[in-house]
C-alpha cells in the first residue's frame, strides 16, 4: 500500500471551513480510514450530502462523485443511488440539523430498511452555516441566536435513536478521539447494512464562543473531560449522565442488507416472468 497522502483524495481547492473547525478532523479521519481499508482513490465511492457546513465535507472537495442535495435530502438521494448501483460504497455526510432536524424522517427510515450505506453525522450542536441557531442537538439551556433565554428544549440522542431504529452499526466519538473515530469509520465502511457514526465536533465560530468556550482547544478539552465510554454509561444513572458525552460502539450486529433483499426479489420476479 502506498503511504497516506491526503492530497490524493482531495481536489486542490481551499477548504471553506473556519480555522479550528472540527470538520477538518472529520475529513482527515475519514480519508485515512479509507486509505487504511486499501482504497487508493475514491472511485468506488459516491458521496451524498445535504446543506450545511458539514455537508461541504465531501462536495466538491473529495476527488469523487458527489451529490450535494437539498437540505435534509441526502439520505433519500443516496437511497436511489445505492439501489441502482449496489456495488458502490455510498456515504452520506451531514450536520445534525441536516440529518436529525429537517431530514430526520429519512434517517430513521433508511435505518429501518437497513439500507447498506454509511452515514456520518457531524454533530456540532448548532446550525453552523446559518450562523448559530438552535439545533435539535443543542444542549438544554444553551444560548444560541434563536434561544436568547437559553434552549428550552431537550436535545436528541441521535445514536440511541438509530440503535432503536435497527442499525447494524452505530457509534459515537468526538473530534478529540481521532484514532477511535477513524477506527469507527473503518468499521462502518465494512458493515454490511446501515452504519451510523455521530462525530461530536467543535464549531468554534457559531457555538463555542457563545457558550464560553473561547478556543477550539477549550472545546476539545470539554469533549475529553465529559466523555464517558458507553459500557460505563450503562451502569450510571440518568442524573450522573447529565452533560456527559457517551462514546463508543453502541451496536454492531448483522441483519440482511436492503439491497440484497431487493435484488433477490427482482431476480425471482424476473425469472418467474420469463418462465411463464
Amino acid at each position: 500500500m502506498t503511504e497516506f497522502s491526503i492530497r490524493e483524495y482531495l481536489r486542490s481547492m481551499r477548504l471553506p471551513f473556519c480555522t479550528g473547525c472540527g470538520n477538518m478532523t472529520v475529513i482527515s479521519c475519514f480519508l485515512k480510514a479509507v486509505h487504511e481499508l486499501g482504497y487508493e482513490d475514491l472511485r468506488k465511492f459516491v458521496f451524498c450530502s445535504g446543506i450545511g457546513c458539514a455537508a461541504w465535507i465531501p462536495s466538491p472537495h473529495f476527488k469523487a462523485d458527489s451529490i450535494h442535495t437539498t437540505h435534509g435530502r441526502s439520505i433519500p438521494t443516496a437511497t436511489g443511488v445505492k439501489l441502482v448501483r449496489p456495488t458502490l460504497n455510498v456515504v452520506v455526510f451531514g450536520g445534525d440539523g441536516d440529518l436529525v432536524g429537517i431530514g430526520l424522517s429519512h434517517l430513521i427510515h433508511a435505518t429501518r430498511r437497513n439500507l447498506d450505506i454509511t452515514v456520518i453525522m457531524v454533530n456540532n450542536m448548532i446550525y453552523g452555516m446559518t450562523g448559530g441557531q438552535m439545533a435539535p442537538t443543542t444542549p438544554f439551556k444553551a444560548k444560541t441566536t434563536t434561544t436568547p433565554y437559553g434552549n428550552l428544549e431537550r436535545p436528541f440522542d441521535a445514536t440511541q435513536l438509530i440503535v432503536a431504529a435497527g442499525a447494524c452499526y452505530a457509534a459515537r466519538w468526538t473530534t478529540f478521539h481521532i484514532d477511535q473515530l477513524r477506527g469507527a469509520m473503518k468499521r462502518a465502511l465494512t458493515t454490511k447494512g446501515f452504519a451510523f457514526i455521530e462525530a461530536i465536533s467543535q464549531c468554534p465560530t457559531a457555538f463555542g464562543r457563545r457558550v464560553g468556550l473561547k478556543t477550539p482547544k477549550e472545546m476539545l478539552r470539554w469533549f475529553k473531560e465529559e466523555s464517558v465510554p458507553v459500557q460505563k454509561a450503562r451502569k450510571m444513572t440518568d442524573g450522573d449522565l447529565v452533560g456527559k458525552i457517551v462514546i463508543g460502539d453502541f451496536v454492531c450486529r448483522e441483519r440482511p442488507p436492503f439491497t440484497k433483499t431487493v435484488y433477490e426479489t427482482i431476480k425471482e420476479a424476473a425469472n418467474d416472468t420469463q418462465a411463464s
Binding site: P76, G80, V81, R85, L88
Partner: peptide
C-alpha cells in the same frame, strides 16, 4: 420529498 430525492439519485446512478 424522499420520493423525488430517490428518483434524482437513481437518475444520477444511470
Amino acid at each position: 420529498l424522499a420520493a423525488l430525492s430517490a428518483v434524482i439519485g437513481a437518475s444520477w446512478a444511470g
